Amino acid sequence: MTLTYLTETFGFRATWNPELILLTALLGLAYFSFTGPLRHTFADATPATLRQKTCFSIGLLLFYFGMGSPLNVAGHFLFSAHMLQQSILYLIMPLLMLAGTPSWLLRPLIARKWSRRILSLFSHPIPAVLLFNTLFSFYHMPVVLDMAMNNLAIHNMIHLLLLLAATLMWMPVIAPLPEINRLSDLQKLAYLFANGVLLTPACALIIFSETPMYETYVDGPSLLCAPFFSAPIDKSMFAVPLPPHEDQRLGGIVMKLMQEMTYGAVLAYIFTNWYKKERDQPEDELLPQ
C-alpha cells in the first residue's frame, strides 16, 4: 500500500484532496495575517508567541493529514487506519490548535451575551466530556459507521460534529479564554482521567469482539468519501493486507494507545506546572492566617 499505488488507483484528487490543501492554506494565511499585520484590528491584541504559532501550524498539518491525505483513503479499507485518523482529528489536532490560538482571537465569539452563554454551557466540563464521548461511541456503533461510510452528507456531518465536540472537550483543559477556563490543575487531572475512563468501553468492545463488527471492513466499501466529494469504489482495486477481525482489534488498540499517550502527555504537563507553582509559592502564603 504505497503512495504511488494509492494515487494511481484512486487518482490525485481522491488521494490528496487539493480542495482541502487550499482550505488548509487559507486557514493558515488567515491565522498568520490576524496574528501579524492585522493584529491591531483586535482589542488588546498581543503578538502570538513562537510556541503558539508552532502549535497552530502543526495542528493545521494534522487537520489536513487526517482529513485529506492518503490516510483518509486507507481508512475506508482498514479499520486500523480509520482509528488512527480518528485519534489525530479528535484527540491531538484540536488540542494543538487551541494551544496555538491567542485569547483575543477568539474573544469575538463571546462578544454577544447569547453566544457567551452557549459556549459557556457546552464547554462546561460535564457537558463537554459527555458530549464528545457519547458522540464518539455512537459513531462507532456498526449501523452508524457503515451508514456514514456510504453517504457523503452523513459522513461529513458526523466529522463536523465530532470536530466541534472534541474542541469543546479540550476547552476545560486548555481554554484560550479565561472566562471559560474554570478548572484548577488538580481538577484538570481528574477531568482527563474521567475522559479516559469514558472512552474505554467503546475501545474494549471493539478489541474484544469475537466477530467483525463492521460490514464496510468485511465486504469492502462501496463509496470513497472525501470532504468535498464522493466517488464509487471498485472493491477489487484494493487488496486489504489484514483479515477484518485482526484489523478491527488493531484499530481498537491504536485508538486506546493514542488516547493514553495524548492524555498521558497532557497530564504530565499539567502536573509539572502544578508542581512548579506549588514549589515556587512563598512560604508565608502556605501558612494559615
Score class of each variant (00 low, 15 high):
30 A>K: 00
47 P>N: 12
21 I>Y: 06
34 F>Y: 13
11 G>A: 04
62 L>K: 04
53 K>H: 05
37 P>R: 15
63 F>Y: 14
45 A>H: 01
24 T>K: 08
35 T>G: 03
62 L>H: 07
20 L>N: 07
56 F>S: 04
46 T>Q: 11
49 T>K: 08
58 I>T: 06
14 A>M: 13
41 T>V: 05
23 L>F: 15
13 R>T: 14
53 K>Y: 02
32 F>T: 07
48 A>C: 07
61 L>E: 00
41 T>M: 03
55 C>D: 08
24 T>P: 09
29 L>R: 03
27 L>I: 11
49 T>L: 08
18 P>G: 09
31 Y>D: 03
45 A>W: 01
44 D>P: 00
34 F>C: 11
46 T>S: 08
14 A>L: 13
57 S>W: 05
39 R>S: 15
17 N>L: 00
28 G>V: 10
59 G>F: 05
19 E>K: 03
19 E>V: 02
21 I>E: 10
17 N>G: 01
22 L>G: 04
13 R>Y: 08
22 L>P: 00
11 G>T: 06
53 K>S: 09
47 P>V: 13
55 C>Q: 06
36 G>M: 10
17 N>S: 15
18 P>F: 12
42 F>C: 04
46 T>C: 00
37 P>I: 13
37 P>T: 11
16 W>C: 10
56 F>R: 02
15 T>F: 09
29 L>H: 01
34 F>I: 07
25 A>M: 13
55 C>P: 00
50 L>E: 05
23 L>P: 02
29 L>M: 11
58 I>V: 15
32 F>W: 14
22 L>R: 04
38 L>M: 14
40 H>K: 12
15 T>D: 05
61 L>K: 00
51 R>K: 11
38 L>F: 15
26 L>S: 11
48 A>H: 06
41 T>A: 05
18 P>H: 12
49 T>R: 09
28 G>T: 11
15 T>G: 06
37 P>F: 15
25 A>D: 03
21 I>T: 05
17 N>E: 14
11 G>P: 01
17 N>D: 15
36 G>C: 11
32 F>E: 08
48 A>T: 10
60 L>A: 07
37 P>V: 14
26 L>R: 10
56 F>L: 03
53 K>P: 00
16 W>A: 10
29 L>W: 13
25 A>H: 04
53 K>W: 03
46 T>G: 01
22 L>Q: 03
14 A>Q: 15
17 N>C: 13
20 L>M: 14
61 L>A: 14
38 L>V: 05
55 C>N: 13
32 F>Y: 13
46 T>K: 12
52 Q>F: 08
35 T>D: 07
31 Y>P: 01
52 Q>I: 13
25 A>W: 05
38 L>K: 13
17 N>K: 00
14 A>T: 14
53 K>I: 03
15 T>I: 05
36 G>D: 10
51 R>Q: 09
20 L>E: 08
59 G>Q: 03
14 A>F: 08
24 T>F: 11
37 P>Y: 14
54 T>M: 10
16 W>I: 10
40 H>F: 03
53 K>V: 01
57 S>L: 14
49 T>Y: 07
22 L>A: 15
